[in-house]
């Protein structure tokens, strides 16, 4: 006797970066409401393997909402639209028996599709490589308490530093803008005394790389903030806009 929900999945299938993809429809039967969304996909995949069909490729790793691997747009919303929740933490009790669910990859020209729901987010890594760091060599760091950091600044920096780099902000934004991601890193380091020496060059270099990767610009729609699983706010974008203007005016 099968219990649980029966769902219809409309999933984007694409063999590789070069192939043309299309939607395919699958039935998910006897879905336990206690499953996470990705566990539901696991079960669908096991079924596909059983039948000798290619399972749906999707990224996931920690499955506890912190590694930032998972990346599907569920019913048009990155990560499925539950507040502060990644797809791996979204549970099936959010859906009803008989629902039809669309599952798509992140869509952005800077995130080319690798296969099915898997996209290439290395653009984010290159943005960090352009300046998302404090240039300190190992060793020779002063004592941890040598520089005082006001708690308020530290808390704000931590708010920004929580970004998991999943790319949902890009996926949600109608312009596929990466401003929320970039600004979170710029803010994190810009708010701390340790980040001051490189503050100007950091923001200039990271924004230049962001533009070179082909992300769109910010039109302040707030979609990124709404879907961010770590609730990174638009304040960070404003902070980065300010930092960039200062750096530009200084002529750095």
């Amino acid at each position: 006797m099968e219990k649980g929900m029966n769902l219809t999945l409309i999933v984007w299938r694409q063999k590789d970066a070069k192939s043309k993809g299309s939607f395919a429809t699958y039935a998910a039967r006897a879905v336990n409401p206690d499953m996470s969304f990705l566990e539901m996909l696991d079960v669908v995949n096991d079924d596909l393997i059983q039948r000798g069909e290619e399972p749906i490729a999707f990224d996931s790793d920690c499955r506890e909402g912190i590694c930032g691997s998972c990346s599907c747009v569920i019913n048009g919303v990155p990560h499925g639209g539950q507040k502060a929740t990644t797809a791996c933490q979204l549970h099936m009790r959010m859906f009803k028996d008989g629902d039809t669910i669309t599952i798509e990859p992140w869509r952005a020209s800077a995130f080319p599709i690798v296969k099915d729901l898997v996209v290439d987010r290395s653009a984010f890594d290159r943005i960090i490589q352009a300046g998302g760091f404090v240039s300190v060599r190992t060793g020779g760091a002063p004592d941890g308490n040598a520089i005082l950091v006001p708690k308020e600044d530290c808390d704000l920096a931590m708010d920004a530093a929580q970004c998991i780099g999943c790319g949902a902000c890009v996926a949600a934004c109608k312009n596929a803008s990466a401003m929320l991601f970039v600004s979170a890193k710029v803010s994190h380091l810009g708010l701390l005394p340790q980040g001051q020496p490189e503050r100007d060059r950091r923001v200039l270099n990271m924004v230049a790389q962001m533009d070179a990767e082909g992300f769109g610009s910010c039109t302040v729609t707030g979609s990124c903030e709404a879907v961010c699983p770590k609730e990174i706010t638009l304040d960070n974008i404003s902070r980065m806009n300010g930092d960039y203007a200062v750096a530009m005016v200084k002529g750095k």
């Binding site: 869509r107 952005a108 769109g216």
Partner: peptide, 21 residues
């Protein structure tokens, strides 16, 4: 134009982006 190029393919049924007025 840049924004259009950054998102050449949209989502199924053109959903309204979350929270965007």
């Amino acid at each position: 134009a840049e924004n259009k190029a950054a998102r050449p393919v949209g989502y199924l049924n053109n959903p309204t982006p979350a929270a965007a007025s």
